[in-house]
Write a protein that binds this DNA or RNA. Structure first.
Lengths: 170, 170
DNA sequence: AAAGATTGTTGTTGACGACAACAATTGATG
DNA sequence: CATCAATTGTTGTCGTCAACAACAATCTTT
């Protein structure tokens, strides 16, 4: 065995002294373990929820091979054609260094085009291509389906309430 | 300049045709850009919120150098001493491969100890050390302060409502 | 005793955030 | 007008994290 530091200790395997719920002693299947202090921490709940929601988004849009960040980039460009990379990065809270690769992949698939700005030769004016526009329409239908999954998971009114609560972060 | 593919196009810099809000023409500072379809997507709001919340957690607990995942691991072990690595990983939704490194760092700081299980020589019974227990108490105070930051950010009752909505994911 | 499952471990891959440089270009200041 | 600071896109590195695949040791089942 490749484990490290295996001292010999004769500790009783009483284990799980505190907050195990609904389990007979001796059972170690471990699917209902108390969290105690972790419940009531917003960060933990949000992290788990985000994992679930991204999984579902990726799965729902797997047929078109679009990830959440790519979708957000195309959406912003579609709503504001001609935007610079800096503007998109700032708006979405991603770094411009990261946006470079995102746009590379989207441009390679002919969804987005970097058009040299007529007023600033440093910057690119971002636009969706024709293919990009029709593709985004399909993405939006799938994203709406994903959004329905969210509503099924947490409840329609809870989803709307959550959107209102977090509206300040968009 | 190292930019790629700079064709010469005489496109008008009208830019931002659709949904720019509250901005005079010609200004390109770009801090108020329409999102349109992105608003109403739970995943986007949750992602931004999670970034904010993790940043605040890390900053608030920077003095003790504890990250959210480390905190969650110690909390679960404290509440359920003797748990195996598999059980902790399953409970927190992290992979056991990842938990190895997390426990390595926590063990190196003498917060957690891997005690060989008396009943199963494959598994480790996880416990907090004395140092780990007193340290966790301090972490919890700082985490509570972070939680107050969350309440200030989104509102006390909104935070509680959000916790209720996402209770199923903990 | 043999076959299959489990546990901890190591390693790799890819997405992602953060940061630091750099060339080209712009804008402001003298 | 010349010069210097700021901006824009780019490249690169680093660290975190989720996901997977392998593996040795061990347990369980038959």
């Amino acid at each position: 065995m490749l484990m490290a530091s295996r001292q010999k200790i004769s500790r009783k395997a009483t284990g799980t002294t505190a907050t195990i719920r609904r389990r007979g002693p001796g059972s170690d299947a471990g699917d209902d373990i108390g969290l105690d202090a972790l419940v009531g921490h917003a960060g933990y709940a949000v992290r788990r929820f985000q994992l679930w929601i991204f999984h579902d988004f990726i799965k729902t849009l797997a047929a078109v091979d679009i990830r959440p960040t790519q979708y957000s980039v195309m959406t912003v460009i579609a709503a504001n054609p001609g935007l610079s990379q800096m503007a998109v990065a700032k708006r979405l809270g991603i770094e411009r260094a990261r946006l470079v690769h995102l746009l590379d992949s989207l441009e390679a698939r002919d969804f987005v085009s970097r058009i040299p700005s007529a007023t600033d030769r440093r910057s690119h004016a971002l636009h969706l291509t024709g293919r990009g526009k029709t593709a985004l329409a399909r993405f939006k239908r799938l994203a709406a389906e994903h959004e329905r999954h969210v509503a099924e998971k947490i409840g329609k009114e809870n989803r709307e309430h959550l959107l209102r609560i977090l509206a300040g972060f968009t």
